[in-house]
Simulated scan of single mutants.
Amino acid sequence: MSETADLRSFVLDLLEDLGAEWLDRGPLTWVRLPDERAEALEVPSSFCMTFAPDQAGRFDAELVAPGSYMLERMLTAATRRGHWGAAKVDTPSGDWVVRALADGGVAMPDPRASFPVRLWDAWIYVFLFRVTLLADEKRESFHAIAVSEDGAESWPESLDLAEAPLVPVPWPADEPQVEGRYTVASRTLEARLSSNLEAFRRDCLSLLEEEVRRVFGYFDRTARELRDAEPSVSEDLVRAIEAERDRRLSEALERYDPKAEARLCGIRAVRVPTAEVLLPTRHGPIRVRTDPWTRNVRGLSCDGCGSTVGPWTLIAASTWRCARCVDATAGESARPREHPPSDTLPR
C-alpha cells in the first residue's frame, strides 16, 4: 500500500469514527460532518477535500497531505478523541508454541523441551503514544508499548501489530487497573526514547551555539563598522544595535529550547492464548511466556546487559543475549581492514 493510500485509509477511518459521511468524486471527496465535529476540525459541516496536491483549491477542496494544516487538525482531533478497544486472538492450529518461541529467537532443538507447563488466556494491553519533539522544528512519531496483564512486563511493539484487525470483544472487567499499566508503559517509552531525546537535545544545543555565534558576529561587526566609518557615531545608536542583538539572542534561546511531549492516543486490550515453558539458562531453568500474537518471549534476561527485551540469540550453552548485545558483539569482532603490503623490509 502506498503512502497516499495509507493516509487516505487513516483519514477515512477517522472521519467514520467522527460520524461523517463521504462521497468520492474522482480525486475529490465530499464530506458531511456533525456540527460539533466540524467545529473541532474548523471546517463547515459539508466540505470538500483531496489527497492530490494539484487538486487543492478546486471547489475549495482542503488538501490532506503530510504537513498540511488540514491533516494537522485531524491528527489533533484523533489524539484528543483517543481510542479504547478490546479484541481477542483465537488459538492457532498446530504447535503454535514452538513457532512463537522460534520467532522470538528461542528455537528449541528438541520439540519435547518446548512442551508448555501451563496454558491459559491472558490480556495484553497495548498503549499507543504520539511523541512530539519541538524546538526550531517539529518532529512527531507514534510508538506502541505492550504491557502484560499483571503489569510486571512491558516491551515495544510494532504499530502494524498494534493496529492489526482482530475479533472485537467486551472490554475486560478490571478497567480501573489500566492506570497502573499506563504508568508502566510510560516508563518503558521513556527508557526506549532516552537516547533519541538526548540526541535531539544535543542537536538543539549545537544549532543554538551556531545561531548565537551568527548573531554576535553580525551585530558586533555592524557596530564596529559604524564606529570605523564615523568615529563620532552616537552611543545611542550603538546601544540600539546592542539591544536588537540581545532581543535576537533571547529569541534564539526560546526557539532552540528543546521540548518533548508524549500523549496517549489509544489503548487496546487483547486477549491472547499464553504458554509458559521451562527454558534452560546458565542460572538454571526459568519459566518464560509467549503468545501467538506478539511472539515475544518474556521472562528471559540478557546475560550481557540484563535487558528483558528480545528477540533473543543463544550464544553458547544456555547463554542468551538480546539483539542489541549481539549487534554490538558482531561490530567489535568484525575483521579489521587489511593493510597493503609494505615495500619496506623489516629490520
Rank of each mutant, 00 (worst) to 15 (best):
A229K: 12
D150W: 06
E140H: 04
A185S: 10
E175F: 14
A173S: 10
A191C: 11
D246Y: 05
F216I: 12
P165D: 05
R201V: 11
R213N: 09
D160L: 13
V169L: 07
E235G: 05
L189D: 01
L166V: 03
H143K: 15
D174T: 11
H143P: 00
E230Y: 07
E140S: 12
P170R: 06
T188I: 00
P156W: 07
K138Q: 14
R187W: 09
S194F: 03
L193S: 00
R192C: 14
K138L: 14
D203Q: 01
I145Y: 07
E198I: 03
E153D: 09
L193M: 02
L197M: 06
V238G: 02
L159E: 00
L159I: 05
E179V: 15
E211A: 10
E163R: 13
R139Q: 13
R214I: 03
R202A: 10
Q177E: 09
I241V: 15
T222S: 12
L205P: 03
T183C: 06
S186T: 02
R245P: 00
L208W: 00
Q177M: 14
D246E: 12
S158Y: 08
D174M: 10
R187G: 11
L161Q: 09
S232M: 15
S206R: 02
T188L: 00
E225A: 15
E198W: 07
D160H: 13
E225S: 08
Q177K: 08
L166F: 04
E175R: 08
S195I: 11
E211L: 00
L166G: 04
E244P: 01
L237Q: 07
A162H: 09
K138D: 14
P156H: 04
T183P: 00
A240M: 01
